[in-house]
Design a protein around this nucleic acid. Sequence first.
DNA 1: ACCCAGGCGGGCG
DNA 2: CGCCCGCATGGG
Length: 288
Amino acid sequence: MNRIMCEFPFSMRLTYESGQPIAFHAEFKGGMEDTLEYVTEKGLIKVTHNTKTNEIKYSYLGDYGKASARSEVMKKLGLSHNMDCIYNKIDTDEFMHKSISELKGLRMTMNPVWETTLSYVVSQFNNIKRIRLIMRRLIGKYGEEVECRGRRLRLFPTAEALECSSIKELMECNVGFRAAYIKEVASEWQSFNYERLYKMDYAEAKEELMSMRGIGDKVADCILLMGYGKMEAFPIDTWIKRALEGIYLKKRASNKELHSFIEGKWPEYAGYAQQYIYWYSRQNKILK
DNA sequence: ACCCAGGCGGGCG
DNA sequence: CGCCCGCATGGG
């Protein structure tokens, strides 16, 4: 059994539940130990977290060695993040202070870029429960089935598999009006060369993503934050918008206005601040 | 029954 | 630019 000693606060539950890409297809069980199991392109990963001792253990099946499996888990769950430093940067006021103390240990995950992209294309004008439902249908229908040490796994669907599908077939997964977006993004993805965006700065990479039909301001920020790990990205959805307007701006504001406010308020780790505001607002059902 | 959800593109002024 | 609209579905 492999272990990771975690010196900063970690909550697998909050990390999983707060609407990040991993939650749309992984299996989570809370209990004496929180357990997360998920399929990757290389195999199967299982992570447990003892909430009393803060000890993390993991096991893996498939094309992993000791080092690559450890790196997969660390990266996915944000386990290398220095939470003292991050909290220090985003604990700017009373509201953030409450959010942090209530959501202590919530981490930003890092996910395969294509997986993140498809998940948030599906997420638009949708809710977390149904995003998960749709993602599982898409995985079941378009994901390649592979055998891994006696276990049958469904891989995440490739862009190619989705592009080759018809709108009608996609609609059988009840994706609704998103079918055309899925097909178009899948089609463009194959010549997109997503890796070059790692080297770009935030603004440039965002522009590249938004050149695809079906990827707008919010989805682009989600991809940059949870796919590329660009911590200055700040996705603005309906919850965040209400929260920022109600708590800070005290008036209605456009996304452009909100983005410029955010840039000034959290020049570092804005993405982390965003996730705490998002989940705290929802948990406490503040502002309706 | 009604309302809303991790939004987007398009059309308008 | 900002504002407004429709868009499929499933859960509350």
